[in-house]
Design a protein around this nucleic acid. Sequence first.
DNA 1: CGTTTCCTTGACCATATGGTCAGGATGAGC
DNA 2: GCTCATCCTGACCATATGGTCAAGGAAACG
Lengths: 218, 218
Amino acid sequence: MSSSSPAGKKATKATIRADNEKLILEAAEAVFAESGFRGATTSQIAERAGIPKANLHYYFPTKKVLYRQVVHNIFTIWLEAANSFDDCDDPVSALSSYISLKMDISRQYPNGSKVWANEILHGAPVIQDYLETSLRDWTQSRVIIINRWISEGKIRPVDPNYLLYMIWSTTQHYADFNHQIETLNQHSPLTDIQFETAKKTVISIILQGIGATPNDRS
Amino acid sequence: MSSSSPAGKKATKATIRADNEKLILEAAEAVFAESGFRGATTSQIAERAGIPKANLHYYFPTKKVLYRQVVHNIFTIWLEAANSFDDCDDPVSALSSYISLKMDISRQYPNGSKVWANEILHGAPVIQDYLETSLRDWTQSRVIIINRWISEGKIRPVDPNYLLYMIWSTTQHYADFNHQIETLNQHSPLTDIQFETAKKTVISIILQGIGATPNDRS
DNA sequence: CGTTTCCTTGACCATATGGTCAGGATGAGC
DNA sequence: GCTCATCCTGACCATATGGTCAAGGAAACG
């Protein structure tokens, strides 16, 4: 059955567990993204993972535990990417690479972003703690950076929070509202070229919008 | 019981129906926003509307019919507001008022925006036709307007689609991700002043971002 | 009033779903 | 190859939920 590892890896106890958990988590991410927490059924997830429902419950005792794990994985990816913010002390490079990376993540992990959006939409019943700790900490530290840029005259004065919200919403839109974008794009996904154009458009509007273009007033 | 009209209106057949449908629709909008289509239960909606479940099903035979009605109402509000786009042929005024109005709607009807977001997130199973007709038509006509502004040199060249997505996502973020914003704002809703600041920030970044500030390069 | 039409609702049903369990299969260790 | 720990799964259960129904009110109307 599908529990055997697909490639040439032999089925040892260790790999069995790792493989199956991965299978289930991937299926769960897709199904949760498509149907939300309550909309998703454990049978659906199991079927998509190619295992019986009872086996799913062997690895993840409850639907909620599985969901939390999915959200956790997403949040990890998301936070790691956010570190590109710090790689550079110049607002143009820092924001460009941050926005670019967030757009790429939206494209590569649309399900993750959707699960996150769904969770916030419904009041974050499962991940409130993440909002209050990791997200808040991250946000506060970046607000400080942005404020420094302002006091150094590198960008014009804008409230950092609303700038961040703008970046988050715009970039994640390409994952969360992917279906709407595709529909408006003749029912086909954005091509690589279109996506690059979108990325450039977003970056240029935001950078120029905060007065951070390379040809500054300096 | 609560079916009697709250004010002094007497309970005639006509008002009974109107009142109850309104009660149910309001409750449904809130519950659908909070839990999504599948997450919402008709009992929940009925309870919130203050009527027995069987009575709800007397007015709306199925959950799906009720949901479609809710989405339809939202879409109507949303499209009407979009007309502010045309009130003016100057990009600065047109975009300012459009963004401002969309922000206000996000604040006044957060549930509507959430239901919409939820629906798109899950692939628009119920409202695909809206996307393909009304939304597409509206978008295409505004793309033409924006392109005209570009050819007239009123704004710098940006792809109109991605500009529109940016406006939609940024403004609706204040409804859809309201919970996250509140959490990051010391668990309290944005004050009127904060909201005005957010609005101004968004408008100024976008307008300056597309080179449409009043003090143009003219 | 009488009756007709519309409204209200407690009780009920079929189905779907999250989760359990007992017993069988399979790799690990010797 | 024997034993043990882990893995697998069909069958099962309790509960929740969308939706129905029949019988009882209340307004419309003459």
